[in-house]
Simulated assay, not measured.
Amino acid sequence: MDATLKKQLEITATKVRMGVIEGVYNAKSGHPGGSLSVADVLTYLYFAKMNVDPKNPQMPERDRLVLSKGHTAPALYSVLANRGFFPVEDLKTLRHIGSKLQGHPVMNKVPGVDMSTGSLGQGISAACGMALSGKLSSDFYKVYAILGDGEIEEGQVWEAAMFAAHYQLDNLVAVVDNNGLQIDGRISDVMSPYPIDEKFKAFGWHVISIDAHDFDAIEKAFAEAEKISGQPTVIIQRSIKGKGVSFMEDQVSWHGTAPNEEQYNQAMTELKAHLAELEK
């Protein structure tokens, strides 16, 4: 990856993480852990990969993204705001009465949101429908779906996986955010989905495994996915829940807990210091 682009993506991803913390702090509720772990891949998609236009969010030829793990909406909102779909200041209204930015994405209220999601397991099915529609209408848009590793314990995910392979949806790329934690603890203890790679291979998917926080690896993975014909691709990204905030990293307690004022200040101090280092 070009060094200038990589640095800009790292800067943007840090701002996205700051937006996540800002949102959940002001809401006094939300899901910071998983939002922070998907910040890098969402930043890459919206700032380096996807064909989208903040001035025309509904353009027919746009690429689509489905946040199947809809509770990590703070990350998607922060990316969309930083990309220019709506003001960054709106992130402070997360989950407030009357705000368009509720706990899960709503497609008919939030510019840039392509599918309303929240009930885990359903988003990937919607993404399959979008991808099949593109195939049938000979459109060239791509469909991206972000899933959680706890989410793939849902049976519907594997029905969708079978569907995508059967219809050879090579315009579909799923990302499994493998941070190893879900609300009840470690996924390996709750209901282990491992080996994730072998399961998707058995369902007929092309599988790529990467470090979720390495922009070079992210770029390489999506470039590889572009070359795959006749089957869907899944990128299994090994991530750190709470990435970027020291006391949140790899802690299941931050799955769905908002920081108090002291924790908010510490998180923002860490992120601002990292941003200042990157911007030197």
Rank of each mutant, 00 (worst) to 15 (best):
V113R: 00
F47Y: 02
L67E: 05
G118A: 13
Y44H: 01
S99D: 01
P111L: 12
K135F: 12
K109Q: 15
L45G: 02
V66H: 03
V52H: 02
P74K: 07
N108I: 13
S133H: 14
N51W: 11
V79K: 10
A145H: 05
D53G: 02
Y141H: 12
P105E: 09
V88S: 13
F85D: 05
P105S: 04
L91Y: 08
V52P: 03
L91Q: 07
V88N: 13
R64G: 02
A127D: 06
H71C: 10
V110D: 01
G129Y: 04
I152S: 04
Q122W: 09
H96S: 14
C128H: 13
P74Q: 12
Y141A: 06
M107F: 15
A127H: 08
S119M: 10
P57W: 04
E153L: 11
G84C: 14
D139T: 15
P111C: 10
S125V: 09
Q122T: 07
V41N: 00
T43L: 00
M59W: 14
R62S: 02
I97H: 12
V143Q: 03
P105W: 06
G70K: 01
F140C: 14
Q102N: 10
G150N: 11
L147Q: 08
I124H: 09
V110K: 07
A127G: 07
